[in-house]
Deep mutational scan, measured.
Amino acid sequence: PTIVLKVSPEELKALEKAGVEIEKIEKNEDGELYITLTPEALKKAGFE
């Protein structure tokens, strides 16, 4: 199962800087950012 999270541009930068593997980055028509994370990326980021 993949996880989709709504993030701010600042959060996205912080995640990328931390080396979190982001599978997909999407922006909706309201300009909101959503990222898709794999279970492996979540484990690496410390989420179980």
Rank of each mutant, 00 (worst) to 15 (best):
E10V: 11
S8V: 03
E10T: 12
E48D: 12
A18S: 08
I22S: 01
L12I: 08
A14L: 15
L33F: 10
P9Q: 09
S8W: 04
I3T: 11
E21R: 06
L12H: 02
P1L: 13
E16H: 12
S8P: 01
K27T: 13
S8E: 03
P39T: 13
E40I: 05
I35Y: 01
L33Y: 12
E26V: 09
K6Q: 05
G46H: 04
A45N: 03
N28A: 10
L5H: 02
E26W: 15
A45R: 03
N28Q: 09
A18N: 09
K44H: 06
A14G: 07
E26C: 14
L33G: 01
I22H: 02
V4A: 04
I22D: 00
K44R: 04
E40V: 04
V4Q: 06
K44P: 02
V4S: 05
G19D: 04
A18M: 14
A41L: 02
L33K: 01
K24T: 06
L37Y: 02
A18L: 15
I3W: 14
K24F: 09
P39M: 15
P9W: 09
S8R: 11
G19H: 07
P9G: 07
T38E: 04
V4M: 10
E10S: 13
V4I: 08
L12M: 07
E48L: 13
P9F: 06
I25R: 03
L42S: 04
I3L: 05
P9M: 06
P9T: 08
A41N: 08
G46P: 03
A41H: 02
K24I: 07
S8A: 05
I25T: 06
K24M: 08
P1T: 12
A14N: 05
A41Y: 02
V20E: 00
E32C: 13
I35P: 00
A18D: 04
K17S: 11
P9L: 07
K13H: 11
V7M: 08
K27Q: 11
E48N: 05
E32H: 14
I25K: 05
E32Q: 13
P39Q: 14
L33S: 03
G19V: 01
V7I: 13
K13A: 12
E21D: 09
G31A: 03
T38N: 04
L5Q: 02
P39L: 15
K44G: 07
I3D: 01
P39V: 15
E26F: 14
E29Y: 10
P1G: 14
E40A: 10
Y34H: 05
D30V: 13
A45S: 08
K43A: 14
E26M: 08
V20A: 08
L37S: 04
A45I: 07
E11Y: 15
N28R: 12
T38L: 03
E10G: 09
E11W: 14
V20Q: 01
Y34E: 05
A14D: 05
K43C: 07
E10Q: 12
I25Y: 06
E26L: 08
E48T: 06
N28S: 10
L5F: 13
I3K: 06
K6L: 07
G46F: 04
K27W: 12
E32K: 10
L5D: 00
A18I: 11
Y34L: 09
K44W: 02
L33D: 01
E29N: 10
V4H: 04
K6E: 01
P9D: 06
F47K: 08
E21V: 05
A18Q: 11
G19L: 05
